[in-house]
Design a protein around this nucleic acid. Sequence first.
DNA 1: GAGGGCTTGTTGAAATTTGAAATAGTGCTA
DNA 2: TAGCACTATTTCAAATTTCAACAAGCCCTC
Lengths: 160, 160
Amino acid sequence: MTDSLSPERMACWRAYIESSQRLFTQLEEDLRADSELSFADYHVLVLLSEAPGQRLRMGELAGRLVFSPSRLTYQISSMGKRGLVSRESCPEDRRGSEAVLTAAGLLALRDAAPHHLASVRTHLMDDLDDAEVACLTRVFERLGRRLPAARDASSTPADN
Amino acid sequence: MTDSLSPERMACWRAYIESSQRLFTQLEEDLRADSELSFADYHVLVLLSEAPGQRLRMGELAGRLVFSPSRLTYQISSMGKRGLVSRESCPEDRRGSEAVLTAAGLLALRDAAPHHLASVRTHLMDDLDDAEVACLTRVFERLGRRLPAARDASSTPADN
DNA sequence: GAGGGCTTGTTGAAATTTGAAATAGTGCTA
DNA sequence: TAGCACTATTTCAAATTTCAACAAGCCCTC
């Protein structure tokens, strides 16, 4: 291939995608092994547990999870069936609805968290020294800032 | 949450997953926008194009893509319908089959590569300095070496 | 040289994800 | 207050992915 990336950067890129894929797969597997949650379920629970009132608008949640709206609808309805979240319609904007953490959801999160965090540690974090952690943090926070609402909305400024 | 990860490491972890997710989504979108390929299609084409005889066993391919066997079967059959790859059964081991790059597949890769690589550069690589690249490479290569224990153990420590 | 236990890859049904269109509500402008 | 453009979310069909069998071939050992 006519690389327009230096060999070092190409190697970096490849290592990054492949290892990340493997890592995510592994974490998902671990999570399913010692809880009834998928990675997505877990992530939803974490975000809700940290939100004021333990509730979030669908759109907000979708944005943070990097989920399409319809995927989130499905995700939340599936979690709803399992009693992990409930839904309420939003008083300020009646088009909207919010996902609310239930007691059972919080319980499930509390149960799963230690296992999951241990998994993150053993597969990733324990192998990193502080300088590496600092480097990754810097790189990925910058990346996140640069790749904002990738989906649609605000990206076409003055055109009509 | 009772974090068993220091706040720094927790922040690192969060930035890493969220940004990675966003990045992968963005790259997929870009790729679809300027080619007929998905990210998975592209990746298959790259791996085949680099393989001796431009062919790989299904298992080998699945391992490198971090795909389940049945997902790969589907993926390859879909690419087969579009003429990007073909299939042959493996002479040494008649259980096996291999995916073979076609001329059209190579063409499609050559067409897509510049766009895709540009996308990787603008969204990620151009923002990294050499030290960061070195750090990411070190971290993710180490991670990749530590993880493949996950599913299949067919890996050779030092080669490729 | 037949059986048993692996490994390779496929299949089919069920679950999930996508993408386009539908539904409902907001808010501006006239 | 009607009309219109826009936003938030859901719905539905089609595409993809998983998961649990299955078929086939390999690799022993006896």
